[in-house]
């Protein structure tokens, strides 16, 4: 079987210790949590860090809580915890939609939200979810914390705003009344990366869409948020015609490539089709939320 090249390993006992290790070892150090992206890359010898900083014991980064009007999720929160969280499901059904189809159960037992976002794979689901939700990331370094909106978190494929000596420590998602959200993904089989996927989050205020967020996965970089579609939706009354238009815009505002998952043309079609479907469900859920909250 494939095995990684040699490296050093440190199990961090605190976030500060982890940051210190990352600062000291610079580019040669990598954080490991679930490891399901990093370790296979290391086995293929496509990644060869000199030091792995294991943050699995940093339980202070493993939490899901509402503070004020934000849901705060620690970076070490496992996929499974997100999937099983009633709090998350109540406010953000899009997260449950996505978590049900992210990898598979044993992988979800180990993988973390922080790892998913930091991998910055354009096909990764939670990034599109967080994009649609207008999430903000909290990055901590020696100088303290800085907050980066999801739109700026990914700097390109496999590249994030997290600098040397820094760590993603938290994800913040705004909690709003009358909210609905949904995630639609096409995969070739259970556990596969998306052929294409679309996440939609919005609120309904007096029958009109507000705070719209639309994020796509696996259709090229830069689609984690689609301002053009969001602008279209905000302030409009939901209708099939609107969904059509939103889908059309979504498929225009992405840059898929042909690969073994499907042709660019097909993925572009999916971007529209899945946006429409997610939008429909998100609106229905928002409607239900409005009723529930009334």
């Amino acid at each position: 079987m494939q095995v990684p090249a040699s490296f050093d390993y440190q199990r961090a006992q605190s976030v500060d210790e982890a940051l210190e290790l990352l600062r000291r070892h610079g580019e040669e150090a990598r954080v490991v949590a679930g490891g399901h992206s990093l370790l296979p890359m290391m086995k293929l010898r496509l990644a060869g860090p000199e030091l792995l900083v294991d943050i699995n014991e940093l339980h202070e980064l493993d939490y899901i809580e509402v503070v004020g009007d934000e849901l705060r999720v620690g970076a070490l929160t496992r996929h499974r915890a997100l999937l099983e969280s009633e709090l998350v499901g109540r406010h953000f059904p899009i997260v449950h939609d996505a978590e049900k189809v992210i990898a598979d159960p044993p992988v979800r037992n180990r993988g973390t939200i922080g790892g998913s976002l930091c991998q910055a794979d354009p096909s990764e689901d939670l990034s599109a979810v967080c994009g649609a939700l207008h999430a903000r990331t909290v990055i901590r370094g020696a100088a303290g914390e800085r907050i980066v909106p999801m739109a700026d978190f990914h700097r390109g494929p496999y590249e994030t705003a997290v600098g040397v000596g820094e760590m993603l420590v938290e994800v913040r998602i705004p909690v709003r009344p009358g909210a609905g959200s949904a995630y639609e993904k096409v995969e070739r089989k259970a556990g596969d990366w998306a052929v294409a996927a679309a996440g939609v989050a919005l609120t309904l205020r007096e029958g009109r869409i507000a705070d719209a967020g639309v994020g796509l996965a696996a259709v090229g970089a830069g689609a984690l948020e689609l301002p053009a579609v969001q602008d279209l939706l905000d302030g409009r009354e939901p209708s099939e015609a609107l969904y059509e238009e939103a889908g059309r815009l979504a498929s225009e505002h992405c840059s898929p490539v042909t690969d073994s998952r499907g042709s660019a043309e097909y993925k572009r079609h999916l971007a529209g089709e899945l946006t429409r479907r997610a939008l429909r469900r998100a609106v229905a859920r928002a409607g239900a939320a409005v009723e529930r909250e009334a």
């Binding site: 598979d104 070739r188 089989k189 259970a190 556990g191 596969d192 990366w193 073994s260």
Partner: peptide, 28 residues
């Protein structure tokens, strides 16, 4: 529905792992 050992035009195998050589699970 899903299995194929594919190649690109240079003869590179595109199905060299279970990420790309797909086998059905209990859900398919």
């Amino acid at each position: 529905l899903m299995e194929i050992i594919g190649f690109d035009e240079d003869g590179n195998c595109l199905s060299g792992s279970f990420m790309d050589y797909l086998l059905p699970t209990a859900l398919e």
